Amino acid sequence: MANRHLENNKTLWWFAGEDPYILSFCSKKTKKKLALNGLVVIIIMTISAISISFGIYEILESYYIGLIVGIYSAILIMFLYIFILYTLTKDVIPPKVKSKYASYSSRALRIGFLVFLGVLVSQPIEYELFSNIVNEELTEYIATEIENRNNKLNKEYALKLNELRSLNIDESTLQTEILRFNKEKELRLHNFIDYQTSRNFFVQKLIIMDSSPKTRFIWVFSLVFVIIFIFPVYQKVYIDKSTNYYFYKEKVQRKLISDHYQKFVVTYDEILRQDYSQFGLKWKSDYKDPPFNSVPIEDITYNSDKEFNEWLLGESH
């Protein structure tokens, strides 16, 4: 039942960015493969909405803003993801010659972006799952920060005390200044502790989670998210170009391009006929297979200026 549902599910095809007309001619295997892509895209969108909503809530402590930003980001990620999937489709129209290095670099950048997106989306969910471990690490981090601050203040006031002693002031005044220094230092340290305990620390929690030796196992979960994000890419890239999927995709694209080209030629020639009828001008291509322009017409040699002028008057650009 599940396989049959995947075979003819136009909703899942839409989420995969595919044309139902083209898929109607494809094998069951291809239909299921691309329907599965659509299902994974829905999963990615849902995970992104939950994760980003939670992340924004942790930073701004607002359910409403977190929910709005999460849903908006999920929809944005979905359309961006569909677009990337579309750009990874093999060329069916003869492309301009380009280097393999440029092609591989372009593909690597797109896949690398999806890997980055997968890791980024996974972070808030991973923190929620392992917050106990991360919070213990954060407590140690805060204690270290307070200790470092205390040592810094001790050095600062020790220098001030040495400066006073170098002035040879009386002992009573010196003791008064020492008491004042202690109160001032305690107040500054107390303010620093209050500041530390009032901070949100969510970004710092994520940094600790990703860098602490005690939480390195969490990268396994990041890897799972990355696999989910690049799974549809793997499915799409490894569809054989000899399948009906690419045969009918080429057929549809060629028809669309040819139809638009014919409309353009008719409109262009009509304008020339109306405005320059005395010259007998019309559209003329330099290629044998317009509008795909993959087979150029061989250069023509003109034996005289008259022949060249006749050719020039018969050509329009």
Rank of each mutant, 00 (worst) to 15 (best):
I42Y: 07
L109Y: 09
V203R: 10
A143Y: 04
L114N: 04
P296G: 04
K288L: 14
I111Y: 02
Y104G: 04
R4W: 14
A49G: 10
P20K: 03
Q204T: 12
Y104E: 11
K155R: 08
L88N: 02
Q253V: 02
F264V: 01
F192P: 05
E186L: 05
S198C: 06
K33S: 12
D269W: 04
I93M: 06
T144C: 04
I84F: 07
E298R: 11
I208M: 11
L23V: 00
S212L: 00
T243S: 05
T267I: 11
V41E: 06
H5N: 10
N162C: 10
E147N: 12
V233Q: 09
N244L: 05
I75C: 04
T139Y: 06
I169F: 12
T87K: 07
Y127F: 14
T301Q: 06
F201A: 10
I43A: 14
D286M: 09
F181H: 07
N154I: 12
S166K: 11
E171N: 12
S27L: 00
A143F: 02
I77W: 01
R216L: 14
E140P: 00
Y245S: 00
D289T: 00
N191G: 07
E307A: 08
R273A: 14
E184L: 13
L272E: 03
T139H: 13
K10S: 08
R107T: 07
Q262S: 10
L189F: 10
L153C: 09
L164C: 08
L189M: 09
I65K: 07
L281N: 15
V97C: 06
T144G: 08
S294E: 02
S53Q: 03
G112S: 11
K28V: 09
N200I: 11
S222M: 01
L120G: 04
Y127D: 03
Y57E: 11
H317R: 09
S258W: 03
F181Q: 09
L88D: 02
I208H: 10
G66Y: 00
N148P: 02
A35I: 01
E163Q: 14
V115T: 08
T215Q: 05
K282R: 15
I300W: 00
I207N: 03
L153Q: 03
S242K: 11
P232W: 01
T46L: 13
L159K: 07
Y268A: 10
E136I: 09
F225H: 12
A102Q: 13
N182R: 10
I82Y: 00
K90Y: 12
W311C: 01
L109F: 14
K96T: 08
I169L: 14
I193A: 03
V203Y: 14
P20Q: 01
Y104F: 14
P232N: 06
F83Q: 09
N200S: 08
K284R: 15
Q253W: 05
I71M: 04
N3P: 07
Q235W: 01
L313F: 11
V92Y: 01
K32I: 04
N135Q: 12
L312M: 15
C26P: 02
D299Q: 08
I22H: 00
I239E: 00
W13V: 02
K236F: 10
Y64H: 14
